[in-house]
Design a protein around this nucleic acid. Structure first.
Lengths: 221, 221
DNA sequence: TCCCTTCTCCAATGATCTTTGGAGGACTGG
DNA sequence: CCAGTCCTCCAAAGATCATTGGAGAAGGGA
């Protein structure tokens, strides 16, 4: 019994340790958006390739990520929705338990409440998609869009948003989304469009939560 | 942005690190059952008091546990249901991702499927409690029962079960539960009673999951 | 085949974490 | 106020982890 118990906690600790490094969490955060190559992760997280590879080995040895080889490149992805859910649970705890996190987020995301009326729930978005009555905009980098997005969404990375203003003005309702509850791209997009006189709304959280709710995901550019 | 981002991941890593030690996880597992004193934890986990205190400080500095002083004793408890949920998510991931964990559990808990028909869901248990048509037995140590149990349940620690066989035979249906999905006390209790000719069932998981589902908890001996 | 790209492995240093006994602080009861 | 209990803090050694550049492996294309 004692052996079995010790073994169980040791196994759990492996998972905890894997999530116990800021660098690795940054990688997990990126991977939560979809699969990526080592070099792409190194660029996005501003780390050395060796460092990224080492961290990925840690994640891999705990079976938290899986790999796929395509030519000389190796694509990494999270091993499953349960891993995304674990990451989400950590975000929730950090947010609830740390005034620092909550404060940093509030400061960065703007005055809480200012955008409450501009929020669309996942269910509402599903309904709108079915009715085809809204333009759903994925403001993440096109790389992440390709790795998985909400079916029917259009890729329009935040940087390119200004170029598409006229286009969006002509269409119907606009709804933006990005990575997750902690991603500010969708917030910023709504604000940017507001300055152009376009009333846009954003999904309540983002792709991360979309996945954890096991909603359909479309892959490809 | 980079600062805010780095800060967020650093905060997250604090939480991950806190869950990245087998000893601390063992303490969290105990605390998931209810509040405990430092010395009680040291005895239960077979660690030195200094060591336990040190680990508890780590958990406290990440705001994962709270304390309450009563005389010379200090009671520790998990800071909230979100922490229990995080622990549950880790268990799920470890179980899904690690063949070792799954195998160790299967070996210890017995042949999977053998007890499937003896399982009661939380909803069924709630219904049975309302109808008052079943004896619900909490087989955890009385200390844990006192720290929080299912309303209407009776404390009957596993060790004392043999003494109560006659008692249970006389009553109606018997349903056991213990700490969580990974706790074997309830399994063993059902088996023990079966050898006595009493058909008992067990709750699908345990107190841990009861709490994460925000179901009512009764406190006190 | 040979070279180029991409990634992993290796080895060594520096940083961080864990454990422990004992000192010291908080509190209670006499 | 003193003695006793329970807990926290401290310091130091031992263990573990992170980072890095460079070597090496795997694959693709000329």
């Amino acid at each position: 019994m004692s052996d079995a118990k010790d073994g169980l906690f040791a196994e759990l600790a492996v998972v905890g340790k894997a999530f116990g490094s800021a660098k690795r969490l940054e990688l997990v955060d990126l991977l939560a958006q979809g699969e990526r190559t080592v070099e792409s992760l190194a660029r996005a997280a501003d780390m050395g390739v060796s460092t990224v590879s080492a961290h990925l080995q840690v994640l891999k040895s705990s079976n938290l990520v899986r790999t796929r080889r395509d030519g000389t490149r190796v694509y990494y992805r999270l091993a499953g929705d349960d891993v995304v859910a674990l990451y989400g649970a950590m975000l929730t705890v950090a947010r609830t338990r740390s005034a620092d996190v909550e404060q940093a987020l509030a400061a960065y995301l703007g005055v809480p409440g200012s955008g409450e009326i501009d929020i669309v729930t996942r269910q509402e978005l599903l309904d709108l998609l079915e009715a085809g009555s809204a333009a759903v905009i994925d403001v993440r980098p096109s790389e992440e869009y390709a790795a998985g997005h909400i079916p029917g969404a259009r890729s329009l990375p935040f940087e390119e948003l200004p170029n598409a203003v006229a286009d969006l003005r002509a269409g119907g309702e606009v709804i933006t989304y990005c990575r997750g509850a902690y991603c500010v791209l969708a917030h910023d997009a709504v604000r940017l469009l507001a300055t152009e006189g376009i009333h846009a709304r954003r999904l309540e959280d983002g792709m991360l939560e979309w996945r954890t709710h096991a909603l359909p995901v479309e892959v490809g550019a």
